[in-house]
Design a protein around this nucleic acid. Structure first.
Lengths: 243, 243
DNA sequence: CTTGACCCTGACGTAACGTCAGGGTGTATC
DNA sequence: GATACACCCTGACGTTACGTCAGGGTCAAG
């Protein structure tokens, strides 16, 4: 069949089929003398597979890899990808929470450029600079008020979850910082901060990541979960924020 | 301060600051004679606000609108945006579920190009064509087997959730199809199909949307929730799939 | 032989920047 | 005063997954 029918049957546009041809993801099964693309059922079946992975959010380049290398471990790819999906969902949950808190006036649409996340809540150099710079603003007062309003139980549970995340990082020591399971933990950490403190943008997160190894106090606190945990977190955060 | 310091303090890159200047999102507070950008604290505060909205996923163009029009209803924007976030999260939950089912071998990485979603499970023209085309394949048999394995209770609860979603659409009749609350329902519907039937790509979804008004049986079934519900669903799906 | 439906290949646009390349500015040092 | 070096600038192209023309062949019907 010609391109129009193939497009109609699968729901994609003709442009998409030509694009997939060009990037080598799906070549037509044949061509007429006049250069018309022809697709057969095998081609359409391959397209179905492509669309399945695309729907899951795989980039097209990776889909091509998966489908062209026969030895590719598809289950492993799926498992890793699932972790990315979970991480993204957790991040969204943090944002939803942030939006709700902002609507209720519990958040000020700004943020403090330092970590008050129970690591040990001492101000380091970075935080001090931020405090000097933003200390006099309404945003600062607002945020102080909010965190001050947390009850002791709330704080305890927040720190407990933080410790859980540290422990999870500690368990992954030895893994590469860019592995999906590690990256998923970074997303969870970011969501944790966003939910409990302030809008943790990736810029903030990157700044925190640097502190975790640069500042003794932060590092020691994190490494209570095991030596090298802070280093892994820091490296993983760097990778996470680079994209 | 000059651009480098501003970038360091806020965590964004210089390139980003120049870009925001160019697109009119954040102009520097001043310029030196030689054309160097200068930023003061007001500018940095504005940048904080920008980054807050950016983190929530607002497009830069909308952030500019929000911040430049004093009469803009920020709470309304946040409320609408929250619905988009929720919709996206639900979609991800559907995909996570799909990935897990695939890993367990309960899914075949393909899909049936027709809706078996309890609407009334009769094959329409579109479905018939798909059946003719894919009917003999393993994928088809596999999927039949799977849905056949659903117990009666499972089916009942699946259909119940479908009815809930129809009712939610019915409650929004009169709203424009592109409103975020309506769009959020579309995402929920897609996630429902993905969770309970097959990988519902946007191409599939678009095909279903057309059926809902084109095919009497589907339309009548949906309109049990109220006349005009199918039309709204169909329109909303069309908008949803267009992007 | 003309119409109309269908096909093709560029080429530009999208969002939000990253990454050079090529060149000017500012200040400290030799 | 020349040089070194850090810092600043403006293009311009690359990225992802296509959408949207523009300009021009192909094919069957009338």
């Amino acid at each position: 069949m010609k391109i129009q029918e193939a497009a109609r049957l699968t729901g994609v546009t003709e442009r998409t089929l030509r694009y997939y041809d060009r990037i080598g993801l799906l070549h037509p099964s044949g061509m007429t003398e006049s250069g018309y693309r022809l697709y057969d059922e095998d081609a359409l079946r391959r397209l179905q597979q492509i669309l399945f992975f695309r729907e899951l959010g795989f980039p097209l380049a990776q889909i091509r890899e998966i489908m062209d290398s026969p030895g590719y471990d598809m289950n492993e790819a799926l498992r890793r990808h699932r972790l990315l999906l979970v991480a993204e969902r957790d991040r969204l949950n943090g944002l939803i929470d942030l939006a709700e808190r902002t609507l209720k006036g519990e958040n000020d649409m700004s943020f403090d450029a330092f970590d008050r996340s129970g690591i040990d809540r001492q101000r380091d150099a970075y935080a001090e600079e931020a405090r000097r710079r933003w200390g006099g603003t309404d945003a600062y007062a607002e945020s102080e008020k909010k965190t001050a309003g947390y009850g002791k139980e709330k704080w305890a549970s927040v720190e407990e979850e933080a410790d859980e995340i540290f422990a999870a990082f500690a368990a992954l020591r030895g893994h590469a910082p860019d592995e999906p399971d590690v990256q998923a933990l970074v997303a969870r950490w970011q969501a944790h901060i966003t939910r409990n403190y302030y809008a943790c943008t990736k810029e903030i997160l990157a700044g925190l990541g640097q502190m975790y190894t640069a500042d003794e106090r932060f590092m020691q606190n994190i490494d209570r979960a095991g030596a090298g945990t802070a280093q892994l977190m820091s490296d993983a955060i760097a990778v996470y924020c680079a994209k």
